[in-house]
Every structure is written in structure tokens, then in C-alpha cells.
């Protein structure tokens, strides 16, 4: 029957999964390979989103920006600005370890959220920014979505290949060494602080790119989109479920969680309306339950980290 509709829905899911996969890959660089507990994903997502929005949107009366830059430049700027902001934050916060770092990064993300909500001249405050162009946005519905999916897939693929390459290189092994035994890595002459900062900046830039891809898809951004629930913790769940330390796991986790989140609503909608409204909460429950089960029975995630006993090549 409605094959076009199904395809359309699948395309849409593909786009969101792609955006979340980027976030999950970025977090994997920070947590999976370097052991940095960044609980402020939403902050860097927001920086990328707003940077690209301000640079590429049409001019507006009440705020700065609307420079109508080309979209690709906006994306590049999103990565650059996210990286530049990550640098001083990393400098200060990365001296903390594990849970202290988590608390500090939650705080940082919250500061960004409040700045975005209150600095009207820059971000439009709680009203947000509209008039953001979407590449191929003038095409009809299906074609436009398809074209955007292609862009997102290209972005994920490029990031995946680059990150894989980087992690297979000596750099990746060094990062794992730092993660697993910092003192030993330092004793081997590795600059632990600088390397951790590198990973933090690298991951943050990719989070910025994901934010940029998200705003151009929706053509608008408001502070509601950077709620920690949907822009930080959901990504942690994706990474843990998929398998932290494994890039394919990070992408798979994003896909599995988003599909459960989205498709379960279709099923609960078949229930009588009185129950259906309450049943909406079931998806939150299912995701929580899955996380519990994975942590209990397969803490390494669906696709665990590959550990090679005898790595080939120069060490």
C-alpha cells in the first residue's frame, strides 16, 4: 500500500539516526577511546547548531547575524567554533577525573543553555532562530528529504572513516594506553594532558557538526532542542548500548535506540485512546529497561571494543 509513505518515514529516521550517530561517534572519541566522561554533549551540539544558524540564516531585526553564508561554510564554522570553545573548557576541566569531569561538563552545558536562552541579541533567546536554509530545500518533500539523507550519510561516512583511520594509527593506541593506564602512558613519555585535550576538542568539533546538520534539517532552532535529556543522556545510552570503544557500535546504538524510540509509538497508537496517551511513556521505560539489561548482561555493549592481542605495525 503506502510504500512512498513508508519510504519517507524511513528516510526521515535515517536522517535523525545519522545526526545521532555523529554525536555518538564524537562521544566515542571522548569516552570510548580516551575515557573522558563528557556529560555536556548538548552544549557542543548547541554551539554548532547556533553557529551555523547565525551565519547562514536570513537577516532578522532583533538579533545579530543573518549573514547568509553558504551552508558548507556554516558547517565548517560550526566545527571550528565548537573546537575553539572546547579548548579553554578542556584546559580547565580536564584536570578533573571521571565523575568530577562529568559534573563540570554538565555545568558547562547548562551555562551554554542559559546563555542561549538569555542573550537575545545573539541567539533570539527563547524564540530561537528561524529562516535557516536547508540544502535542496526547494525540492518536493520526498526528494528534499532524500537529498538531505544523502548529505547526512556522506557526513557520517566521512567522519567514521577518518575516526577509524585515526584510531588504527599509533595515535589511537596511544589514546587507549592513556585511558587504561595513565601513569604507565606518562612513564612512556606520552603527554597525557595534551592528548586528552586533543581528544576532547576533536570530539567536540564533531558534536558541533551534528548540531549544524540538525538545524539545517529543521530550518529553525529553539532552546528546547538542547534539553539534556534528548541531547546528552540519550546519546550516552546509544553509545553504551552500541558498545563504547567501537565506532560501528556507536552507529548501531544510535540506530537501535532511535528506532525503538520512534517505532514503539506506532505500536502503542494502536491501543485504545484512553490507554494510548499513558502508553507513550512506555518507550521511555523500554529504553531504560534495555539499558539496565545491557549493563547487567553485556556491559561491553552489542558490538564490544575489538582488542587485538598482537597489533601489527610499528608501535
Amino acid at each position: 500500500m503506502e510504500l512512498i509513505g513508508l519510504a519517507n518515514y524511513a528516510i526521515f529516521m535515517g536522517i535523525l539516526i545519522g545526526i545521532y550517530a555523529l554525536l555518538s561517534l564524537a562521544l566515542n572519541i571522548q569516552w570510548g577511546f580516551t575515557g573522558l566522561f563528557n556529560a555536556g554533549v548538548a552544549g557542543f551540539f548547541a554551539i554548532g547548531a547556533y553557529t551555523s544558524a547565525i551565519l547562514t540564516s536570513t537577516p532578522a531585526l532583533n538579533r545579530m547575524g543573518g549573514f547568509e553564508w553558504p551552508i558548507l561554510l556554516g558547517w565548517a564554522a560550526a566545527m571550528l567554533v565548537a573546537a575553539m570553545i572546547a579548548w579553554p573548557i578542556g584546559k580547565i576541566c580536564l584536570r578533573f577525573r571521571s565523575d568530577y569531569l562529568a559534573i563540570a561538563t554538565i555545568g558547562v552545558a547548562e551555562i551554554f543553555r542559559l546563555i542561549i536562552k538569555s542573550e537575545d541579541w545573539l541567539t533570539g533567546g527563547s524564540r530561537g532562530i528561524t529562516g535557516i536554509p536547508r540544502p535542496f530545500g526547494d525540492l518536493p518533500y520526498v526528494q528534499s528529504q532524500l537529498a538531505y539523507l544523502a548529505l547526512v550519510v556522506i557526513a557520517v561516512l566521512v567522519v567514521y572513516l577518518l575516526v577509524e583511520r585515526q584510531l588504527k594509527a599509533p595515535w589511537g593506541r596511544m589514546m587507549r594506553a592513556i585511558r587504561d593506564n595513565e601513569a604507565a602512558a606518562a612513564a612512556m613519555g606520552k603527554q597525557v594532558e595534551a592528548r586528552r585535550l586533543q581528544a576532547f576538542i576533536f570530539g567536540s568539533a564533531i558534536m558541533g557538526l551534528a548540531g549544524a546538520l540538525f538545524v539545517h534539517f529543521n530550518r529553525s532552532i529553539t532552546p528546547e532542542a538542547i534539553d539534556p535529556m534528548i541531547a546528552t543522556f540519550l546519546i550516552w545510552i546509544m553509545l553504551i548500548l552500541g558498545g563504547s570503544g567501537n565506532n560501528r557500535g556507536a552507529i548501531l546504538g544510535a540506530a537501535v535506540i532511535w528506532i525503538i524510540w520512534s517505532v514503539s509509538e506506532l505500536l502503542t497508537d494502536r491501543l485504545p485512546t484512553e490507554v494510548a496517551i499513558q502508553a507513550k511513556y512506555i518507550r521511555i521505560f523500554i529504553i531504560g529497561l534495555m539499558l539496565q539489561l545491557v549493563l547487567r548482561f553485556r556491559p561491553e555493549g552489542i558490538l564490544p571494543e575489538e582488542r587485538k592481542r598482537n597489533p601489527v605495525g610499528p608501535g
Binding site: E2, G5, L6
Partner: peptide, 16 residues
């Protein structure tokens, strides 16, 4: 109340 879920719900409503 957020764009991620709103676009998801609207896409399902329109296409499915």
C-alpha cells in the same frame, strides 16, 4: 515539547 520528537511524530502522522 522538543523539535526532535515533534518532527518524528509529525513524520509518522503524515507518512504512516
Amino acid at each position: 515539547c522538543n523539535p526532535q520528537n515533534a518532527t518524528d511524530a509529525a513524520t509518522k502522522a503524515v507518512n504512516i
